[in-house]
Nucleic acid binder design. Sequence first.
DNA 1: CGTTGATTTGAATATCCTCAACGTGCGTGG
DNA 2: CCACGCACGTTGAGGATATTCAAATCAACG
Lengths: 278, 278
Amino acid sequence: MRDTCEKPLNWRAEGTRAIGLAPRSLVHRMDESDSCTRCFQSRSCIQAGLLQNAKADRPVEQTAAIRLRKGQRLFAAGRPLDRVYAIRTGSFKSVMRAPDGRQQILGFHFSGDMIGLDGYAAQVYLCDAVAVETSEACEIDARVLDAAARDYPAVQRRIQALVADSMRRAQQNLLVLGSMQGAERLAHFLLDLSDRHRGLGLSSREFALHMTRKDIGSYLGLYSETVSRLFARFENAGLIQMTRRHQVQIADRTALSALLGRPSVSLRIVKSSPPTAD
Amino acid sequence: MRDTCEKPLNWRAEGTRAIGLAPRSLVHRMDESDSCTRCFQSRSCIQAGLLQNAKADRPVEQTAAIRLRKGQRLFAAGRPLDRVYAIRTGSFKSVMRAPDGRQQILGFHFSGDMIGLDGYAAQVYLCDAVAVETSEACEIDARVLDAAARDYPAVQRRIQALVADSMRRAQQNLLVLGSMQGAERLAHFLLDLSDRHRGLGLSSREFALHMTRKDIGSYLGLYSETVSRLFARFENAGLIQMTRRHQVQIADRTALSALLGRPSVSLRIVKSSPPTAD
DNA sequence: CGTTGATTTGAATATCCTCAACGTGCGTGG
DNA sequence: CCACGCACGTTGAGGATATTCAAATCAACG
């Protein structure tokens, strides 16, 4: 019943993780650097991850992963939820649009995350999903997923956990927006990203921020200028370092965490731009 | 199979509405002013509403509704979700506590609302539920609910819809906190309450705000002083009128709605406190 | 190499927080 | 029933924080 390849799969960086219950439960494994498209582009990895764990084997259908360029929309709010998506590469943002044109970014999603599940109960997408950069997503048919959930308790539980996460995340963000001020919000954001990157097996110390300052601002309830200034303050205070325009390095994780929990106590300039040789 | 009383039930004001799919689907009906405790205090109304609609009859267990005084807690975040609750009378707030002691109010809930369902997927309560005033709630055993959901698609759908609502509400509030300023947030809050009161068959023009200014502030991401000042500005501008300390009357709904969608344009004093004879 | 969009920086302003004092209403107990 | 105490609410003044508008800089891309 195995189909394509036998190589180890970098489950964490691929769509499979989204549903897969544990790496060892996957049928297919593949090297991180391997790009065996035949396997990646099929729905097989995901379903294999699902069904193998449920102690079943199933024939696998071949479908292409969806590729989106920056700014393109994966799904639109209000549409009936017929598929959910596992992000293979790149990143997406969840955008909510108010009738008056205003928009709010509800979250950012990275490789391995599932998106669309916040609308699972409503059976309707609650927000737009827009690619932050060129990205690929595996589509998972909602009916197939429902069927799997009906037949296999483990799958059912996994889906529930993912839905629960999106609820928890929304409520957590309410706390962030409702009772933190700028510097604290940004610190929280950076630490959250850091943790999630660690979860992906990537560096939690240095990572890319492909979204714009405006996007970060929308997510944090701030204006892009404010975000920009906060980044500058963090850098001056020695908390972070911008290695490139969209690449941040956590220089002092402890001090960043210390920003949480209390108002923006100090943020004194630590190094007044000493002309160091780098 | 019917047990206690045959009188018409004010479904809207009672816990039954929470799950009941439509008033006419209820087995038991009772007059609004009637206090037939035997029926109200039993789980029967709720389950009858559930099961009758699903075209089934079942024996009914007798359990008391829970009565809480102001400030008492119905359930606590982190505990396994073994029951959900339908509010019979009074009101509750959902409170999230951060490890650092800070707290954020996630929502207010009134008679007829179900609470606890935001943690349904997680199988754990995600927040505390605290009585805003003396209140009564009917408990619904999660296992009984699950069983009903398994057996009856209509019940399943109803629960999903309620879970979906709590998700939608959380996301909507993210928009409010993330991209509206004080006056707009309060206007939104008042209009939301107004609509919900209409939904309960109560006046959408005048209603009570039993929660404190501090609670409203926490919910809206503002300080109680700011909330107080905003109320004063609204009253001066002729948008609302405080009939009592905790009773508000929407005087100019159109103008209130107009506050949404754009920044706090004007809020000019309409009547400079003319010494009217009242 | 020029155009475009994003980002940074500056200055002025608005909003909201913070502290403090005072007023009000409510419940308790005399 | 009244007096008291206490929590809540209101109001004011000052300051911190974030917005807003404007201009300059930077980066990416054709």
